[in-house]
Design a protein around this nucleic acid. Structure first.
Lengths: 205, 205
DNA sequence: GACGTCGATTGATATTTATAAAACGATGAA
DNA sequence: TTCATCGTTTTATAAATATCAATCGACGTC
C-alpha cells in the first residue's frame, strides 16, 4: 500500500468522531487509544486499546463510525486508506482471512464487555479489570494506570466517585491504592470476590 | 454443502450452550431465537434475532461459544458444519466477503447494544426499543410481543418488575399496554422522550 | 364452574448508583 | 514560595434500580 502513512500523535488527540465516514483504517502500532461514545450529554468509554486495528467494521462496510477515538498516550498509528483496504480485501484471500479473524476477535471482545456490563456490579467489574490488567513486579502484582481514573471509571460504566468507593471496598480484598498505582496484595481474596470467568474475561485462544 | 441440514425446533429449545465448541453455523430461516448468557446465578439476554446467522464469530475462529441460544418461537434453522464453513471461506472469495460483511454488521449491532446499555436509563431503553420494533396496523402503531415480558426485561437489562414500572412511566408519553400488545398513541411524545439516535438505534445502511 | 399454575403487576423496602458540594493533594506557573 | 488548577476523594443526599412479598388475571385442567 503506497499511500499508507505512519503518523505520530500526542496524548489527548481526537482521531475519529462518531458519525463520520471512515477514510482510513487505523492500526495502532504503539501507544494507547480510547474508544468512546456520547449521547444526550452523556459520555462513555467503550474500550481502551493498546495495539490493534480499531473500528475495522466501519471501514469494511463503508458505514459511519459508531465510536469516537482519542489518544490517551503519545501514539504511533498507521493509516491505510479505506478504499485500498476494501480493494485488497477483495484481491488477497490471505488478507481477507486475517481481516475476518481480526473482526471476529473484536466481536467476541465486545460480547465479553456487554456480559461484564450486564452481569456484574461495579465493584465486580473493577475487581475483574484489575485481574486482567496487573503485571508482576518482583513478588508484587501491580496495576500501573496509564490514564486518568476518570477514564477507567467510564470504561467500567460508572463515575469517578463510585470508582473511588469501589476501590475502597476492594481494600477488604487486599487491594491497595495510591495514586495511579494499585497493588494486589492478596490475589486469592480478589479472585474469590471477582469470580472471573473464561467466557467474560478470557483473552482469545 | 451436501451435509447441511434444515431443522425445525419447537419453542423454548436450547440450541447452544455457552462454553461449547461450535460444530455448526446456525442460520435462522424462520422463527425467533434468544441469545443469552449466565454467570454466577445471574442471567441476561444479549440479543433476540429473527432471521440471520448467529454466533458466526465463534465458528470462524473455532473458539467456544460466549453465548447460549434457545428458540422463543417454533423455528427453522439451517445447520452448516463449522469445518465446511471455514473451508468454503478459504475457497470462495464471494463467500468470504459475505461472511465479513455479516460479522461486521453483527459487530456494529453489538456496539449499539453496548451504547444503549451504558448511555441510557431503563425507560429510555424501553422507549427506543418500542420505536425500533413497532409496526403499523392501519393508523395505529403497535408492538405485538412474540415472547414473554420477562425476556424483554432481560434484553433491556432490567427486571420484570422494573419493566412494568417503565411501561407505566411511558403511559405519560402515550404508551398503552394491555397484555402483549403495546400501542404507541403519540409517536411525537415518545420520540421526544426517547431521543433515538442513528448511531445507536439505526439499522445498517 | 372451581381450582391450580404461571406470568405479570403492585406495593413496600433495601441496595446500588448517581449527583452535588466540599475538601484534599499533587502539579505547574508566577 | 505562593497561588491556581485540576483530578481525586470524601461527605451528604437524591435518584434509580433491585428485591421481596403479595395480589391479580389469564389460561388450561379437572
Amino acid at each position: 500500500m503506497q499511500v499508507s502513512s505512519l503518523q505520530r500523535y500526542p496524548p489527548n488527540t481526537l482521531l475519529i468522531s462518531e458519525g463520520e465516514r471512515p477514510d482510513f483504517l487505523h492500526v495502532l502500532i504503539e501507544g494507547c487509544v480510547e474508544l468512546f461514545a456520547s449521547h444526550n450529554g452523556r459520555h462513555t468509554t467503550i474500550d481502551i486499546v493498546k495495539a490493534s486495528t480499531f473500528i475495522f467494521a466501519a471501514v469494511i462496510l463503508d458505514q459511519p463510525y459508531l465510536k469516537s477515538a482519542r489518544t490517551l498516550l503519545e501514539s504511533r498509528i498507521l493509516l491505510l486508506p479505506a478504499k485500498d483496504v476494501r480493494a485488497i480485501f477483495y484481491e488477497d484471500p490471505d488478507f481477507a482471512f486475517a481481516a475476518i479473524a481480526e473482526i471476529s476477535k473484536c466481536y467476541r471482545d465486545l460480547v465479553k464487555l456487554l456480559k461484564d456490563q450486564k452481569l456484574r456490579s461495579t465493584s465486580e467489574r473493577l475487581a475483574n479489570w484489575l485481574l486482567r490488567n496487573y503485571s508482576k513486579h518482583g513478588d508484587d502484582l501491580v496495576v500501573a494506570l496509564e490514564f486518568e481514573k476518570k477514564t477507567l471509571s467510564s470504561l467500567l460504566g460508572t463515575t469517578p466517585e463510585n470508582l473511588s468507593r469501589a476501590l475502597g471496598q476492594l481494600a477488604a480484598a487486599g487491594v491497595v491504592t495510591s495514586g495511579r498505582t494499585i497493588r494486589i496484595t492478596d490475589k486469592e481474596a480478589l479472585v474469590a470476590f471477582a469470580s472471573p470467568s473464561r467466557l467474560i474475561d478470557g483473552t482469545i485462544g
